[in-house]
Nucleic acid binder design. Structure first.
Length: 487
RNA sequence: CGGGACGUAGCUCAGCUUGGUAGAGCGCUUGCUUUGGGAGCAAGAAGUCGCAGGUUCAAAUCCUGUCGUCCCGACCA
């Protein structure tokens, strides 16, 4: 997928992806103008092109939330300490990462206010006020918000101190309904990742050690990055009655008994964009899936001396496509065509439409797909201008499909089902990818693996007839576990 | 939070060892010629050397502190 036709990088600030994924990733995020570092440690500015990605993610995911019966609302950023500490495990889990507001103006506050690291405490408190009867349930609310977590090591999208996400919070009358909701939203995330971000994932339940603080069960979708590390891309938590007890969400049921509600929470952040960037990018820069790309196509006019038809024609073409709802623009800047080609490839635009004198004479345009290498079969096609709309649509679909297919191949190559303890530990240490084994599901065993390899279980799945002994410790196996080093 | 590296023009970096007038390439501005894979020529503009102290006649250069970025680890959902 990468351009290795000549030794030097196309965009000199972007090192080869293979050589140093970290350096490649940071360079691409900055060069493609997705983000800039802000004058605050660990925070980034999401620039218009990066925000365009986020808006497209938001729009698609939001439709899916609405389609599953949820409504949006907004809750306060600041959470009184006394509320946050109500759920013991929850506080303990988040304590190291909470930022505190201690002063208002010159005046010291009588109670510290946490800047939300997540909103279970705030939303739980409100749900307690709103829920009295089984008739008030379920409550199905989502909020799009920013949160702050005091992180020590940060990277654009993957881990920043402040980040954008959505957090869904629901309350139900029964454990079964809460579990159903948790799994439903997990599947929404899985489908979104695969069909929109074109990032294949594995999904499943988390081990006890990897569970959200305060949850009964945590589920996640996990993507595999090119360096063999897993990237948790969304989570869905069945909170049982833990938070309902802590925050007093109770209701009178049909049997006239007062019961605690069952709650869930689920979230996807802009980290998903990081997964997408790392999964699809190549040595020329970003490759964006059409469904998320801020620009689906860019029209590059090619001017020739004494022939200035191309610019006007490109503008007209772009306007025509925009009228059909396409995210397209004409690049009429005073730069050479080659410069624009490189620029838009680096920024990941899925399709380029070239429009030069030859095309103008012939009534054609040239379509170039970003997912293909230069000179590769099908990379460039000449289409009649009258057929452009359909051809563009087909090309976008093809790019979307090809990116997913390539990513699926990468994932498949990094999945290993292992029977031997030594091979398991070696592959974990070696960062080979998802290493799957029959596993005992004991915290002590996981701690042992982590100490020896720094890998942890990412998700657990049902056993599929593997040997009944844990590959690590030989105790009875209860699940199939997928181990990996992770971001 | 520990180990390592780095902050000099918009970008990539040289200069620092051995203190003495702020440098290069790319980019930028203007003009002309160009334009189907990062164009050419000419002229021009542009830097409190991350920040704050200290040593010194003199600091980008030496010392201390601090802020930030990157890499490796620890922590983390």
């Amino acid at each position: 997928m990468s351009d290795t036709s000549n030794g030097s990088p196309v965009v000199k600030e972007i090192p080869p992806k293979e050589a140093d994924l970290s350096a490649w990733y940071t360079a691409v995020c900055l060069k493609a103008e997705l983000v800039s570092y802000a004058p605050v440690r660990g925070c980034v500015v999401l620039r218009p092109y990066g925000y365009g990605l986020w808006e497209n993610l938001q729009r698609d995911l939001d439709l899916r939330f609405k389609a599953t019966g949820h409504e949006n609302a907004y809750f306060p950023l600041l959470i009184p300490e006394s509320l946050l500490i109500r759920e013991a495990e929850h506080v303990e889990g988040f304590a190291p990462e909470v930022a505190w507001v201690t002063h208002g103006g010159q005046e010291k506050l009588s109670e510290r206010l946490a800047i939300r690291p997540t909103s279970e405490a705030m939303i739980g408190t409100m749900y307690a006020q709103w829920v009295h009867s089984h008739r008030d349930l379920p409550i199905l609310i989502n909020q799009w918000a920013n949160v702050v977590r005091w992180e020590k090591a940060t990277r654009p999208f993957l881990r920043t101190m402040e980040f954008l996400w959505q957090e869904g919070h629901t309350a139900h009358a029964s454990a079964a309904q809460a579990r159903e909701e948790t799994l439903r939203m997990l599947d929404v995330y899985r489908d979104f990742a695969e069909t929109v971000a074109a990032v294949p994932v594995i999904s499943g339940v988390k081990s006890a050690g990897e569970r959200f603080p305060g949850a009964v069960e945590t589920y996640s979708i996990e993507a595999m990055m090119p360096d063999g590390k897993a990237l948790q891309s969304a989570t869905s938590h069945d909170l049982g009655q833990n938070f309902a007890r802590a925050y007093g969400i109770s209701f009178t049921d049909v049997d006239q008994q007062i019961k605690f509600a069952y709650t869930t929470s689920w979230g996807m952040s802009w980290r998903m964009l990081g997964a997408m960037i790392m999964t699809h990018g190549d040595d020329r820069g970003l490759r964006l899936p059409p469904k998320l790309a801020p620009l689906e196509a860019v029209v590059v006019p090619i001017v020739r001396a004494g022939d200035d038809r191309a610019v006007a024609s490109a503008r007209e073409l772009a306007a025509h496509l925009q009228a059909q709802g396409r995210r397209v623009k004409a690049d009429d800047r005073d730069e050479s065509p080659g410069w624009k080609f490189t620029e838009w490839e680096m920024r990941g635009v899925p399709v380029r439409i070239e429009l030069g004198p030859k095309d103008l004479d012939a009534g054609t345009v040239v379509l170039v797909r970003r997912d293909k290498n230069k000179g590769e079969e099908g990379a460039k096609t000449v289409v009649a201008r009258a057929a452009l709309s359909g051809a563009l649509s087909a090309a976008l679909d093809a790019v979307q499909a090809a990116l997913y297919e390539q990513a699926q191949g990468q994932l498949a190559r990094r999945r290993y089902l292992v029977q031997e303890r030594d091979e398991f530990l070696a592959r974990c240490r070696n960062r080979d990818g998802f290493i799957e084994i029959a596993w005992c599901d004991r915290p002590e065993c996981e701690a042992q693996v982590k100490a020896e390899t720094t890998a942890t279980s990412r998700v657990l799945m049902p056993l599929e007839g593997e040997s009944p002994a844990c590959v690590v410790c030989a105790q009875p196996a209860r699940v199939r576990a997928c181990f990996a080093q992770s971001y």
